[in-house]
Amino acid sequence: MKPWMVLIDRTAVLFLGVAAGAAIGLAFAYGGHPWPEQPTQPEVEAAAEPAPAPVPVEPAKPMPQVAGVECAMPFQQQLLDTLADGGKIRVGVFGDSFGDGLWSALYRQLPANANFQVVKYSQQSTGFTRYASLNIEEHTAQQLAADGPVDIAVISFGANDTQGVMAGAKAARLLSPEWKRVIGERIDGLVRLLRSRGAMVYWVGLPKMRKESFDADISAMNAFYADRMKMLGVPFIDTVPFSVDAGGAYAPYLPDGPEGKRTLIRANDGIHMSMTGYVRITRGLADRIRGYVEAARSFTAQGEPAVQQARAS
């Protein structure tokens, strides 16, 4: 095995600690039109929000391993080139309105003064069951063609996908074998596209939901996503443990921060997070991204010959 084939990203430990003074906001509402014969749920658009200012990140406290699958793969050449050229590490966030919240949280935790550029590619009211209105893979290809590649891609979809999908000329019910085939192929296509552009990919699962029936669908969908990511070798970030109380129940308020103060972490819709909540569930992911980048930086510090060897391989 060549020396550049260094295996990385084994830090599957999520961390606690809070960015002091993080504003509570970004209450993005659920935007899903339901599949026929399901109860209609209102679609609420989130107000546009200016790019948030970075906030200090408190030292992380290790927690038991609860997040996702391990990923063992060589450093992506795109990131090695970015580091060798002294450019900013571009982190692209792809998803629906939940992805909007993840973008805002990661923007705060991976600031420009630490040489990161966190870019919002998420779009409200989208999903893998909604290709009639927006083909996510084609749309992502257009975004990357216009903006250039990203070094790291963070994906989160699903809140709009608790419905059936057309499988050819027939309707496939939620999580049926045909539904899994169609949605699985779309997921595979998106991951394949991002990797072909040089990105290291992470998938962020959805948190506990307030409505019991909706939570049952989301839990089953999370399991489907986690299995798919395991097959693809993509780290799946499980956010459920950071959105429930000690008994595993939905909790709008949870202890957070250095003093464990009772803090609002959920939006009023029972689906999305508050801004503090988004920071809470992405804190470990931000730490993993920093660790991945620093490991790659150490590799590039070995000198230009090592990087040239990687480029030629």
Rank of each mutant, 00 (worst) to 15 (best):
K2N: 07
A306F: 10
F224Q: 05
P42W: 06
Q117Y: 02
D238F: 04
V69W: 06
P177L: 10
D9G: 09
V55E: 09
V279R: 09
V293Q: 02
V244I: 06
K120W: 01
I152W: 04
F214C: 09
M229R: 05
I218P: 03
A310N: 00
H139N: 07
E212K: 10
E185H: 12
A312L: 11
D287F: 05
A220V: 12
G205E: 10
L7Q: 14
D287L: 07
A167V: 11
G291E: 11
R130N: 04
L144H: 08
G148S: 14
D217Q: 11
A29D: 08
S156E: 00
Y121Q: 10
E212H: 03
V201H: 01
A246E: 13
V165F: 13
A286S: 14
I155F: 10
I187P: 00
R108S: 09
S176D: 07
G257Y: 10
P305H: 10
G25H: 03
A220R: 15
A12Y: 03
V118H: 02
L264C: 12
A72S: 13
D100I: 03
M1K: 01
T162P: 07
A132T: 00
D217V: 13
H33M: 08
G21F: 11
Q163G: 12
V240D: 14
T282H: 04
E178N: 05
I24Y: 02
A46C: 06
T300M: 01
G284N: 06
A301N: 04
Y131T: 04
A216Q: 11
S125N: 10
A12N: 06
V201D: 00
I281G: 07
Q65T: 15
A295Y: 11
A146S: 07
L144A: 06
A22F: 01
P54A: 15
A112T: 04
A84C: 07
N115Y: 00
R181H: 12
M1T: 11
V13P: 01
D9R: 09
E58F: 04
L264D: 10
D238K: 14
L194K: 01
I237P: 04
A286N: 05
Q142T: 11
M166V: 06
G189D: 04
W103C: 02
M221A: 13
L264P: 12
M200K: 14
K120E: 05
I265M: 09
E70A: 14
G21D: 08
R181T: 15
R262S: 02
V66H: 05
A301K: 03
I136G: 03
P241N: 06
M229T: 03
V69C: 09
